[in-house]
């Protein structure tokens, strides 16, 4: 897998990280180094194996635990919004959202 500048731009857009033109080339070479490393996976025969999402699944079966339908979170707006970069009247403010 080889990452080209256009791929890098696309992926940076997808991940919403602005990358300047000057950063592009060194980042591309670092990422290609990483992809070279992870390409080692391709040679492994994993036919018939289930992906292991939760590590303990290899020894025991763990289903999702379910919560009772109770209201346990009360209004903490002031505390929860204390870190907001911009807010007014209980709303987070952002540059205009276009639909």
């Amino acid at each position: 897998m080889e990452l080209h500048p256009d791929d890098l731009k696309r992926i940076a857009r997808l991940a919403r990280i602005a990358v300047s033109d000057a950063e592009l080339a060194p980042l591309q070479s670092q990422l290609n180094g990483i992809f070279g490393l992870i390409d080692e996976l391709q040679a492994v025969d994993t036919k018939g194996l289930e992906p292991l999402a939760h590590p303990l699944d290899v020894v025991q079966h763990l289903p999702q635990r379910l919560r009772d339908d109770k209201i346990t979170e009360l209004d903490q707006r002031e505390a929860n919004m204390a870190n907001a970069p911009a807010s007014e009247n209980g709303l987070f403010l952002v540059p205009k959202v276009l639909e």
Binding site: R67, D69, K70, I71, T72, E73, D75, Q76, R77, N80, M81, N89, G90, L91, F92
Partner: peptide, 24 residues
């Protein structure tokens, strides 16, 4: 339901903005 799918916040309609928005 009474509460949200992944948190214990109320889902009642018409509350003041962000008063039913927990840390989660």
């Amino acid at each position: 339901t009474a509460s949200k799918i992944f948190s214990g916040s109320s889902i009642a309609f018409g509350a003041e903005p962000n008063t039913q928005a927990s840390a989660i």
